[in-house]
Write a protein that binds this DNA or RNA. Structure first.
Lengths: 112, 112
DNA sequence: CCTAATGTTCGATGTTCGTAGAACATCGAA
DNA sequence: TTCGATGTTCTACGAACATCGAACATTAGG
């Protein structure tokens, strides 16, 4: 596990973010993280293989949507809310509200 | 040219809209239409073949973002602003603002 | 050390997407 | 009716994507 790279706010692109949030699993992950709490990888529940989950988390990270931190062999994920809000004002809230209304990504959740 | 189908507001999905707006050409078209004016197909300028432009307009239409009207052999495109705003509050404005700030889709424009 | 736990990466597969050109359908005008 | 303009649809193709299982790397614990 090499240290993951996180884009600076200036490196984030609208197309990148829109593309990243064009998948139900990733929107589900976004919703899970939307309370601002950092979550452990193992807490995340999604109906995909772990390699696929790893892929989705990478897409989110590469788009600048999340930040990943390592601690020992564990990983912790967190929404980059303030940076996103500064870079794309209103976008995150609009997506989260719409996602909640439609219940997009409801298959994604936390460990019971 | 058969009559194109337009989704009802309830049929629009967040994922559909996010996916449709994950392409620079389509965001460019959105920006061109963002003043609310109806535009003729021929007015639109984009660095792609006409079949490709037709495809992109179809994607936008299928997602519920635009409305296409036919008049004789001409087509007119229009942004479904109020319906989108009602269905996805704040989303369109957030995307348009971010797109303007980044100048996404600047290759798309109107006939000089 | 050896082992278990935790993610990442790799290889493979099937799907979707963006793109273009060619053929087609429709309509207005000559 | 014939022709030209205007979009749409068909077909094709390479790139990108979502997905999985297997192999791998790293670290904690015994």
């Amino acid at each position: 596990m090499k240290q993951a790279r996180h884009p600076e706010p200036e490196e984030m692109t609208l197309i990148g973010v829109m593309g990243a949030l064009g998948d139900p699993i990733r929107v589900g992950l976004l919703r899970v993280l939307s309370d601002g709490r950092e979550r452990g990888w193992g807490e995340l529940r999604a109906p995909v293989a772990k390699s696929t989950l790893s892929h989705h988390l990478r897409v989110l990270r590469d788009a600048g949507i999340t930040r990943t931190r390592q601690e020992g062999t564990r990983c912790y994920v967190e929404l980059r809310r303030s940076e996103l809000d500064a870079r794309f004002p209103g976008l995150l809230d609009a997506v989260l509200n719409a996602a909640a209304a439609e219940d997009v990504g409801d298959q994604v959740g936390l460990t019971a």
